[in-house]
Write a protein that binds this DNA or RNA. Structure first.
Lengths: 198, 198
DNA sequence: TGTTGTGAATCTCTTCACAGCT
DNA sequence: AGCTGTGAAGAGATTCACAACA
């Protein structure tokens, strides 16, 4: 879990050099036993009665989840959502994962760079994806253009897609697809909010 | 799952009156058995060899997941992400779940209405949440203001929070909290993209 | 004493397989 | 013949509980 890494990083930023499994568990919203087992899977060992050394643990996690050479990401769609994502990642992210290209059909008013990221028309997707070595695509286009965009990304060669459009996409089975559906998530929250309140 | 409902709605929009569990399963990315079991939990029965009647099934799902009287939602933060969410939900959503108020610290340039939604300063959160009967809050503010915003929402009386800020929030156990963390999700996709490609 | 590492038990979710219906 | 409803099996994930260690 990359959530651990961020939690550890903030803990490191404030005071401590070590954490106990139950501290990390509470921060992440899971049980202490869960944390210990997850860390075990990393091949890292803490010391009893002293917990885990934060810095070393972050290192182990990074070694485990990061690609050795880093990965490049493409963003499709520069509406409100696309710009939100872009501003999010461009502002002081570490370089292991960086959005290096953005695509949108409407680029008239853009000078080609937004939040420090080059913008192109979708027609050039294949060319750019391949020349930049992009492996992951983010879909932030309107629903009716999502499948078409996914097809283009796949055809260009990405192997992972993060989809924000509220439509089911069809991709080859070798491409990893993750749907982040705000509508569904909000309905889920509303459901539990209802059932918590009584 | 509210995903089913949307899939059913689109299927209804194109041609069919009935679906088979394996059709719905394929669309939702789950197995047919899974679909049947989920539907079973609703208390709805399809007819063998004819599948499920879409319209009736949508009705049952809605009856199950929707609050009888509908629910109101508040949005905190009107940056790129907040505006994306707002434009998303204001454009032709059904009224069972509607964003009726938005909050942001910078409202100077706004005339008080954005995408058909009234905007207020955070100080008025308690007042508005209570007068509008809001039960769900969305946090789309910068990370360093997230906890403060959550506190305010909880104190105002919401029982469910959808959090987009990449920080762990502390809320009372009666408040349902759902974290939608774009960073983590993107890292997950990158991880699988890496491991799929070989 | 307080924490880690981990086998064992438990629990939840998923799939299988098939009877029953049309 | 084809699909649903569902008990039973299976797989995974989570938690328990405790030995080992500082």
């Amino acid at each position: 879990m990359s959530l651990y890494r961020r939690l550890l990083a903030t803990q490191l930023g404030q005071d401590a050099e070590r954490v106990y499994s139950h501290q990390l568990g509470r921060a992440a919203g899971v049980s202490a036993a869960q944390v210990r087992r997850d860390i075990m899977g990393l091949g890292y060992s803490g010391t009893p009665n002293s917990g885990y050394e934060i810095k070393a643990l972050i290192g182990k996690i990074s070694e485990y989840i990061d690609a050795p050479a880093g990965q490049q990401v493409a963003l499709a769609g520069l509406g409100n959502l696309g710009r939100a994502i872009l501003s999010y990642f461009s502002s002081g992210r570490k370089t292991k994962l960086s959005i290096v290209a953005a695509f949108d059909v409407e680029l008239e008013r853009l000078d080609g760079v937004l939040f420090g990221c080059r913008c192109y028309r979708p027609e050039r997707m294949r060319e750019i994806v391949q020349s930049e070595g992009i492996t992951v695509g983010i879909i932030a286009v309107p629903a009716d253009a999502a499948q078409e965009t996914a097809d283009r990304l796949v055809e260009a060669g990405v192997t992972g897609i993060l989809n924000f459009a509220p439509v089911p996409l069809k991709v080859p089975s070798l491409v990893y697809l993750d749907n982040m559906d705000i509508t569904i998530e909000l309905e889920t929250v509303a459901y539990f909010a209802q059932h918590r309140s009584e």
